[in-house]
Amino acid sequence: MIREFGTSELWFVVSSARWTLALTLIALGLGGVLGFVIALARVSRLAPLRWLAAGWIGLVQGVPVLMLLFLSYYGLSLAGLDLPPLVAAGISLSFYASGFLGEIWRGCIQSVPWQQWEASAALALSRAQQYRYVVLPQAVRIAVPPTVGFIVQLVKNTSIVSIIGVVELARAGHLVNNATFQPMRVFCVVALVYFCICWPISLAARWLERRMHVGRAG
């Protein structure tokens, strides 16, 4: 029996965006913390830390998100650890985010001119103080555009977790389309909801960038 694409179907699609948002926030939170540690390790003076971080980044970037997802869902369940799909999805997306954010932020830290390190060292700041007061504040400004670019990618890439049965935005659209067979309407709505999430993020980034450059030329 084919259903109409009515209010309840529309609501089902729109409300399942909460899982898209939840997964994005989880990946951003956990992946962000891990990514920050990895970025610092990547520019550490201790070679083993640098290698470890480089290895992690290489691994995460070299493997499709889908494989990270399968590994944490099916792989870990084979190992006896039966994770609910949502948890497996959260973990794999966090790993994915950590690898990319780590590399993005490594670049931002390194693009702060070395003279800033030298000038702050000459003023007797410790390494931790150099990071905290001189290098990271400058790196954060540089980091806004690429980080936001990545967050927008992340929002859209959460759709991949539909494969292990998490009903987020893309999966909800799929289910409703199966019942109504009105792909144009259904997927236009899905696309519109994605747009309504991503567009404000880009706008906020532009605003943030302007705000952080108040009083500064260039």
């Binding site: 003279q115 030298e118 000038a119 702050s120 000459a122 003023l123 007797a124 410790s126 504040p137 500064r216």
Partner: peptide, 29 residues
């Protein structure tokens, strides 16, 4: 670090901290 507290250096390229106002640049250390 102890030595650097007592020895100031000024560079050819100034190397002020661009994210801090002049006063904050001086107050930081």
């Amino acid at each position: 670090r102890d030595l650097r507290k007592d020895v100031g250096i000024v560079f050819q390229s100034y190397n002020l901290f661009p994210h801090l106002k002049v006063g904050e640049n001086i107050m930081l250390a």
